[in-house]
Each structure stands twice: as structure tokens, then as C-alpha cells.
């Protein structure tokens, strides 16, 4: 793994590293990827229809609404404004 790839994956992951952290992480991730790469030698293809974990259409939840959750309790782990979650202003 190179720095550019790590940067890209960090962007996808919404993580930042200091230069020093990045060096460590790059080394560790390289080791990890090397381990993962050993599966490339195994020749096998995936067929999602053969997972056999499907359920039937009849097993789905019936469309019956239930009362929603008390807003205050739902938001007990944040500080809402006008019952809304607050985030830094989004640009379009």
C-alpha cells in the first residue's frame, strides 16, 4: 500500500493521521494487505444465488405502522435545536 492509496482510503473512512501515525499505519496496513493477498492464489468464483440464506416474500414484515419514539429520548445523546440534529452548515 502506498501513501496515495492510504490517503484515498482515509478520505473514504473520514479519518486523518499525523505524519508519524501515517508512517506506522502504512507499515501495518502493508503487512495486513500482504496477508490478505494470499487469497489471490485461490481460484474460486462467487455466486450470490448459492448463499442459500434467502427468505420468502411471505416472511417480510407486514405494513402496519406503530407509534414512533419520543423525540426527546431519541435525542438524549446529543443537543438538538428545534428537535433537529445540529451539524456545521452544509454547502451544496
Amino acid at each position: 500500500m502506498d501513501i496515495a492509496t492510504l490517503d484515498h482510503i482515509c478520505a473514504l473512512s473520514k479519518l486523518n493521521f499525523t505524519e508519524e501515525e501515517q508512517k506506522d499505519m502504512l507499515g501495518q496496513m502493508t503487512d495486513i494487505i500482504d496477508l490478505m493477498d494470499t487469497i489471490k492464489e485461490y481460484d474460486i468464483t462467487y455466486d450470490d444465488t448459492k448463499d442459500h440464506n434467502e427468505i420468502g416474500y411471505g416472511d417480510l414484515r407486514k405494513d402496519i405502522p406503530a407509534p414512533s419514539f419520543p423525540t426527546e429520548k431519541l435525542q438524549q445523546n446529543t443537543t438538538p435545536r428545534d428537535n433537529c440534529y445540529v451539524v456545521p452548515k452544509m454547502m451544496e
Partner: peptide
Amino acid sequence: KRRILLGNYALS
């Protein structure tokens, strides 16, 4: 963090 990076790498 390592797991998140590995996971996003494997899916990217």
C-alpha cells in the same frame, strides 16, 4: 481504525 481502513480498502 485499522479495521475501518482495511474494510474500505477491500470494498473500494
